[in-house]
Structures are given as C-alpha cells and as structure tokens.
C-alpha cells in the first residue's frame, strides 16, 4: 500500500530545517549555512511497516522570524507540519507558544511536531534547564549534525499521518 503525504518544515531562520531534511533524505550533513529562499521540495519513500510505504513530500520553507508572514499557499494541502527551533538560540523559541498558535490558526487540525534542533550544541543538563525555564515542550530534540532522533521524528510523523488517512 502506497500513499503520498505533504509535510511542511518551518521555523525561524538558521534553526537547521534544511539540515534536518538533508540528514533524513541523504544521510549527510554540512556545517556550511546556506540560506533557503522560498521553498525547496524533496521526497523520500519511507517504509513504516511491512508492505506499507509512504512518500513524504518535504517542503523546506524559508526561515523567518515572523511566522505570520509565511505564505498561505505553501500550506495548502499540507498533511503534517514540523516546527523547528534551535535549542542554542533563545530568539528562535522565546515566542514559541505564539508562533505555534499562528501556525495552528493557518492549518487547524493538521498534525504538528515541535522539534528542538542542534541538541549537540548544548549539554543534556543545560538543555533540560533551557526547556524548563522557557516552559518548552518539544516532541523531539534532534541533531542534524549527529543524526540523533532525525529518522525517529519523520517516521513517527509518517506513521501518524498514515494512521490518520
């Protein structure tokens, strides 16, 4: 059984959205930061169970510190969302609650994963303090650099979307 799901990856600039997708799709990582302009779209076929595959169409949106400015057309027909913040840069998560509210208003009832990326830059104890102090609740703390929890993130979302289908 095969299906196709559109997943939009969004968040502030420089949080590692492109790196997360690249790690997931090609299992590579580059330290060079190259700004994404507009949208880059890639695709990966994922086996979520025996004889059960799903094509994830990953929309890598240009990062912005004004989430409300994201074009609505990008979100048309979206099955799932990944909102990424950078655990080492407070400016990317200090308004997380409000950012998520804006996203949910644009695409209500679309499954959404909140991801704290660059977990390799902060030690575990400090990371816990950062999350507690800012009352942040992330579904995954990932590192595109080391690959930690990257596959788990997309597989979980894929399973969730196929289950919802």
């Amino acid at each position: 059984m095969h299906s196709s799901k559109k997943i939009v990856v969004l968040g502030h600039f420089g949080v590692g959205k492109t790196s997360l997708i690249r790690r997931f799709v090609t299992d590579t990582f580059s330290d060079n930061y190259k700004v994404t302009i507009g949208v880059h779209i890639t695709k990966k076929l994922v086996e979520i169970a025996v004889d059960r595959e799903v094509s994830l169409i990953l929309w890598d949106l240009e990062g912005t510190d004004e989430i409300e400015s994201i074009r609505d057309s990008y979100l048309l027909g979206t099955h799932g969302l990944v909102f990424v913040f950078d655990v080492s840069r407070p400016s990317t998560f200090e308004h997380l609650g409000n950012d998520l509210k804006i996203v949910r208003n644009k695409v209500p009832e679309t499954p959404l994963m909140v991801v704290g990326n660059k977990s390799d830059l902060v030690d575990k104890a400090e990371l816990k303090t950062v999350l507690d102090e800012n009352e942040l609740s992330a579904d995954f703390l990932t590192s595109a650099k080391t690959g930690e929890f990257v596959n788990e993130l997309f597989l979980k979302l894929a399973t969730l979307l196929v289950g919802d289908a």
Binding site: V39, I41, S73
Partner: peptide, 12 residues
C-alpha cells in the same frame, strides 16, 4: 478546491 487561482512564489 473551490478556489480558481493559486500562486506559489519562489519555488525551487
């Protein structure tokens, strides 16, 4: 969709 025009900007 009921809409008749869709615009997508900066698609790579």
């Amino acid at each position: 969709s009921a809409e008749e025009v869709f615009d997508f900007f900066c698609i790579h």
